[in-house]
């Protein structure tokens, strides 16, 4: 099986998607959705207590995917683990055959369902990437030698539409310097912004996987604009959803159009289907041609 890393490095356009692991230990729905996608996409992002809502450990969920022959991208946030826990999860991942890691700072604990918990943030995403790079050279953060050297393919998040871009660019360059080999971006609604972003980060050699978000209705679009930092859905798209007789079909059409428009300037797309993963083939049908 050709890995995500091999595909990206050989210039193959990749498609990834996000599947949330369950709140609970019954992984059947998670696995069903993942199996249904496995032939159509190149890797599945396993989210880490997404939005600071407690769920099954992504390490366990990603290991289940590996067992099924599905390639995961393990999302790892700094919110819930200190440097010992992050490193031991990374070594655990390597032992279980998980190589792709998306290193994230993580949403704040006050966004989620355990608001009285203690946020950790012992490291930030740049320092986590440095840690991954260090482990890959056989050393832990304290400089101790490891038994067996883990192999990772590390990535990071990017928000191409967040302003001021000049400020975020400093951090993006640090992420690449610390070892990020690919970016998975926040949802893109204005492909020209992605083009500007790709032009800015391309000199670093990093691969860019553009985030495509399935808007299910005008109401959802307005909710996102109001509540999700860094995401701005243009008024034209909201109007298009508003005028639609079948908003979900129009949302799929918008996502398909955005993915196709993004294709020329990036190395892949990452589909966030918000629970409607069965619609992903419809969104990505033109991308493989």
């Amino acid at each position: 099986m050709i890995s995500l890393q091999e595909k990206l490095e050989s210039g193959t356009f990749v498609i990834t998607a996000e599947v949330s692991p369950p709140k609970g230990c019954d992984c059947s729905e998670f696995l069903g959705k993942s199996r249904a996608l496995s032939g159509l996409i190149d890797a599945i992002n396993v989210t880490d207590n997404q939005g600071a809502n407690m769920r099954i450990a992504p390490l366990a969920a990603a290991a289940i995917l590996v067992r099924e022959g599905i390639e995961p991208i393990l999302q790892l946030t700094c919110r819930d683990r200190n440097r010992l826990a992050l490193q031991s999860d990374l070594l655990g991942a390597a032992a279980l055959g998980i190589t792709n890691i998306l290193a994230l700072t993580g949403d704040h604990i006050s966004c989620g369902d355990h608001r009285t918990g203690k946020p950790v943030f012992d490291l930030d995403s740049v320092q986590l990437l440095q840690t991954i790079t260090g482990l890959s050279t056989g050393q832990d953060l304290a400089g101790n030698a490891l038994e067996g050297v883990p192999l990772f393919y590390a990535g990071a998040a990017a928000a191409p539409q967040a302003e001021p871009f000049a400020l975020t660019l400093f951090k993006l360059e640090k992420k690449v310097a610390a070892g990020a080999r690919f970016f998975q971006t926040q949802a893109i609604f204005e492909p020209q912004r992605l083009q500007a972003f790709c032009a800015a980060v391309r000199p670093t050699g990093v691969k860019v996987i553009a985030g495509i978000f399935l808007l299910k209705s005008a109401g959802m679009a307005r909710f996102v604009n109001k509540n999700i930092p860094g995401l701005t859905i243009p008024a034209e798209l909201i109007a298009e959803l508003e005028a639609a007789t079948d908003p979900l079909a129009t949302g799929v059409e918008i996502a398909r159009r955005l993915a196709t428009e993004c294709r020329s300037c990036c190395d892949g797309v990452h589909i966030m289907a918000m629970g409607r993963e069965e619609l992903i083939p419809e969104i990505t049908k033109e991308l493989r041609q």
Binding site: T105, D124, S125, P164, T168, G230
Partner: peptide, 29 residues
């Protein structure tokens, strides 16, 4: 910064605002 990040703004910053408190300016901004 509610997350105390040391290498620039987190992904929740937009228009110089903080993801945790929309009234607050991002420390890194």
């Amino acid at each position: 910064c509610p997350k105390g990040v040391l290498n620039g703004p987190c992904g929740g910053m937009d228009n110089g605002r903080c993801e945790v408190d929309a009234e607050a300016e991002c420390a890194w901004f």
